[in-house]
Simulated assay, not measured.
Amino acid sequence: MSGIRWSLGSPGPAAPLDPGLTRRELLVPYWYNVDTKSVESDETRGQDANVMGPYATEAEARQAIEHARENTERWDDEDREWDAKGATPGWDDEDQED
């Protein structure tokens, strides 16, 4: 599979807040606009913008595509490992713990 996978799920536990962040950085989420390849804030983002985020800082938003690529590579590796084990799509509920 090629391309970048998108996930709407939780990225995992939140990182601890950087005590050096300004009040504005704490209150205004940032977004990476996929079409313009630029970082936008809630204040500048268009309502129909094609964005990734939100991110707590501009720096995190600038890294959005790189993080998406890293996740996609990791997920593709996991898929290949899964396929190599002869796994089939889906699962059997009997194999799941309650």
Score class of each variant (00 low, 15 high):
Gly9Lys: 00
Ala56Asp: 02
Thr44Tyr: 05
Ala64Leu: 03
Thr57Asp: 04
Gly46His: 05
Arg69Gln: 07
Gly9Leu: 00
Gly20Pro: 00
Asp18Cys: 10
Glu40Val: 15
Arg45Ala: 08
Glu25Thr: 05
Ala64Phe: 03
Pro11Ala: 08
Trp91Thr: 00
Thr88Tyr: 06
Thr57His: 07
Gln96Leu: 14
Trp6Glu: 13
Asp92Gly: 01
Arg24Ser: 08
Asp83Phe: 01
Ser38His: 07
Trp75Arg: 12
Gly90His: 08
Thr36Leu: 06
Asn33Asp: 15
Arg74Asn: 03
Asp18His: 12
His67Lys: 14
Ser2Cys: 03
Pro11Asn: 08
Asp48Arg: 12
Val51His: 04
Pro13Gln: 14
Tyr32Cys: 11
Val39Asp: 01
Arg45Trp: 01
Ser38Tyr: 01
Gly3Ser: 09
Ala84Ile: 02
Arg80Lys: 14
Ala84Tyr: 03
Gly12Thr: 05
Gly86Glu: 02
Trp82Leu: 07
Lys85Ile: 01
Gly20Asn: 14
Gly3Lys: 06
Thr36Lys: 13
Glu94Ser: 15
Gln63Phe: 00
Trp82Arg: 15
Pro29Tyr: 09
Thr36Phe: 03
Ala15Gln: 13
Arg45Leu: 04
Glu66Gly: 13
Ala61Lys: 01
Thr57Val: 08
Leu17Cys: 05
Leu8Glu: 13
Ala59Tyr: 00
Arg45Asp: 04
Ala61Thr: 02
Ala59Glu: 08
Tyr32Trp: 14
Gly46Phe: 01
Val34Asn: 04
Thr57Met: 08
Ala68Arg: 12
Val39Leu: 01
Trp91Ala: 06
Ala64Asp: 04
Pro13Arg: 11
Gly12Val: 06
Asp93Met: 02
Met1Trp: 04
Ile4Leu: 15
Leu21Cys: 11
Ser41Arg: 00
Gly3Val: 08
Gly46Val: 04
Arg62Ser: 11
Glu78Gly: 03
Trp6Phe: 12
Asp77Pro: 03
Glu81Ile: 11
Trp91Ser: 11
Asn50Cys: 09
Trp82His: 08
Asp35His: 06
Thr88Pro: 00
Val51Arg: 08
Arg23Gly: 01
Ala68Pro: 11
Asp92Cys: 02
Thr88Asn: 07
Ala84Val: 02
Pro19Ile: 10
Ser2Arg: 11
Arg5Pro: 06
Asp79Phe: 06
Pro13Tyr: 07
Ala14Val: 02
Trp75Val: 14
Asn33Arg: 04
Pro16Ile: 02
Glu81Leu: 12
Trp6Cys: 12
Gln63Tyr: 00
Trp75Asn: 10
Arg24Pro: 02
Val28His: 04
Val51Leu: 03
Arg80Ser: 13
Ala68Lys: 10
Lys85Pro: 01
Asp79Arg: 05
Ala15Pro: 05
Gln47His: 10
Glu43Asn: 13
Pro29His: 07
Val28Gln: 12
Asp18Asn: 15
Arg5Cys: 09
Thr36Ser: 15
His67Ala: 13
Trp82Val: 04
Thr22Phe: 09
Trp91Lys: 06
Leu21Arg: 14
Thr22Asp: 08
Ile4Ser: 11
Gly12Ile: 06
Asp93Ala: 09
Trp75Glu: 09
Gly9Asn: 07
Gly53Ala: 12
Lys37Tyr: 05
Thr57Ala: 10
Leu27Pro: 02
Trp91Tyr: 13
Ala15Cys: 02
Trp82Gln: 06
Glu70Ser: 14
Gly46Asp: 06
Gly46Gln: 05
Lys85Glu: 09
Thr44Pro: 09
Ala61Glu: 00
Asp83Met: 12
Asn50Ile: 07
Gln47Trp: 05
Lys85Trp: 10
Lys37Ala: 15
Pro89Leu: 14
Ala68Ile: 07
Pro19Cys: 11
